[in-house]
Amino acid sequence: MDIEEVRKVASLARLSLSEEELATYGEQLTRILGYVKVLDEVDIEGVDPMPHAVDLQNVFREDAETESLPREDALSNACKTDGQYFQVPQILDQKD
């Protein structure tokens, strides 16, 4: 992976990384991705992907009313609230 590719992945991952970190991860990821090439040996022709250990179909439940988390509890771990809502920085009329 070249440094620009690493920078792009960091941006997709929403991680702000230093130049030094970008270089380290680039090198380590390149080694790991080199290793996983071993999977090319496996005959996977016609094999269904296995995203999950249990072959579950849709799981339905009754559409019943239940109590939900009280607002105070839901907000209790937030960094900033006004007591009713989560607060975030202004996102409109800002730089892109």
Partner: peptide, 14 residues
């Protein structure tokens, strides 16, 4: 090339 292929090998392991 990566994720989907890994899911197929996962079934082989199973």
């Amino acid at each position: 090339a990566y994720y989907l292929k890994a899911l197929k090998v996962r079934r082989r392991i199973r």
